[in-house]
């Protein structure tokens, strides 16, 4: 499902115009981004938890060039699906490639 389909479905369910849904979603994702950047995490019920954490620098081996390197630290966004979502999607295998 892509973004436009998501917006269409949401506008059907909430009885709001697609334009309005699009605007609200866009602003929401901006808030998500801001919240994550402040180092805070948040949960969307029935969906999951978003957060950030810092991956420490680490030593890695490049097998092609046969040398070790120190990879820099990295700050990443994490998502943990909530138990409701996990339970729902658990058993049904879908071809998504």
């Amino acid at each position: 499902m892509n973004n436009s389909e998501l917006i269409r479905r949401l506008s059907e369910r909430l009885r709001l115009s697609q334009r309005e849904i699009r605007r609200l979603l866009k602003r929401s994702t901006e808030i998500f981004k801001k919240t994550l950047d402040e180092g805070l995490s948040f949960t969307i019920p029935e969906f999951g938890t978003f957060g950030t954490h810092v991956r420490q620098k680490r030593k890695a081996y490049n097998p092609h060039r046969k040398r070790f390197m120190m990879l820099p630290p990295k700050r990443v966004v994490s998502f943990h699906p909530g138990s409701a979502l996990k339970g729902h999607v658990k058993s049904q295998r879908v071809d998504n490639e």
Partner: peptide, 18 residues
């Protein structure tokens, strides 16, 4: 969240802009 679940179950993938 509900629609996302629906989309994941149907297509196995879901993209949200941003």
């Amino acid at each position: 969240a509900v629609v996302a679940q629906e989309g994941l179950l149907r297509d196995g993938r879901l993209s949200i802009a941003g």
